[in-house]
């Protein structure tokens, strides 16, 4: 009984290592490529240094090739790039060089690590590092070094609300480097607040935004107007 299972696992492992990095990325893209558009419910949580922002619910919309919008009834801070920025960047396999750099466990899942270097200098992406699920061929983690936003770390998890067949996670955790927000006392008019900052204290911090998706609705031909209309 054990022999066929071991054989199957070995076969998967051999096939993973046997494939070229570009083939692996093409498999990842194939899943996401099935998504023409989607909408879903979203719950956003923020952990930003020196900024207190309560969680909020909203709706999220995506349409190929790169239309993305989160609609909420309140103020939200979102990463500059849409979360599928990296997948869009990988769509054209001729536009980058991919290198296999090893394997790692993300939680309990075995992942292949691939590094991606864009070929053209005009690309916003300088360097991309992807941790790809060996079995399901979905991106578990990506680390993107960009010209516009510095380094962004994206962790995806594929739980009960995910659409793994389309490479759509149910939770994304975006980690960005950011400077601590500070304004002069005279502008903030915060006279009573005694500053606790010291000269040696780092002015840099790490901001985390957690996006939890649920109730995905895929390929329902979303109109373009959802990406432009005002939130009521």
């Amino acid at each position: 009984m054990k022999t066929p299972i071991i054989t199957a696992l070995l076969a998967i492992s051999i096939s993973a290592s046997a494939q070229s990095p570009k083939q692996i990325l093409a498999q990842v893209n194939e899943k996401f490529g099935k998504v023409n558009d989607y909408s879903a419910n979203i719950h956003l949580q923020f952990d930003l240094p020196s900024i207190h922002l309560d969680p909020i619910d909203g709706k999220v919309f995506f349409k190929k090739p790169a239309k993305f919008r989160i609609k909420t009834k309140g103020i939200v801070f979102l990463p500059k790039q849409n979360p599928y920025y990296s997948l869009s960047a990988l769509a054209d396999t001729n536009s980058y060089t991919a290198v296999y750099t090893g394997e790692e466990k993300i939680g309990t899942v075995n992942a292949v690590i691939l590094q991606v270097l864009p070929n053209g200098g005009e690309n916003d992406l300088i360097l991309g590092k992807f941790w790809i699920d060996k079995v399901n061929r979905v991106v578990l983690r990506s680390q993107l070094t960009t010209k516009s936003s510095g380094t962004i770390l994206l962790d995806n998890s594929y739980g009960a609300n995910s659409m793994i067949a389309y490479a759509l996670p149910d939770q994304m955790t975006v980690t960005v480097d950011m400077a601590k927000f500070k304004v002069p006392k005279m502008i903030s008019a915060d006279i009573n607040n005694k500053s606790t900052h010291t000269a040696n204290e780092s002015k840099k911090g790490t901001g985390v935004i957690k996006l939890s998706y649920s109730a995905y609705s895929i390929n329902k031909k979303l109109p373009d107007s959802v990406f432009t209309e005002e939130v009521k």
């Binding site: 207190h52 103020i75 927000f181 500070k182 006392k185 008019a189 915060d190 607040n193 500053s195 606790t196």
Partner: peptide, 16 residues
């Protein structure tokens, strides 16, 4: 709309 309150060492955003 939500209220952004500026503090000398940060920012608080309160829901409407």
């Amino acid at each position: 709309g939500d209220l952004i309150v500026l503090k000398s060492d940060g920012m608080v955003i309160l829901r409407d």
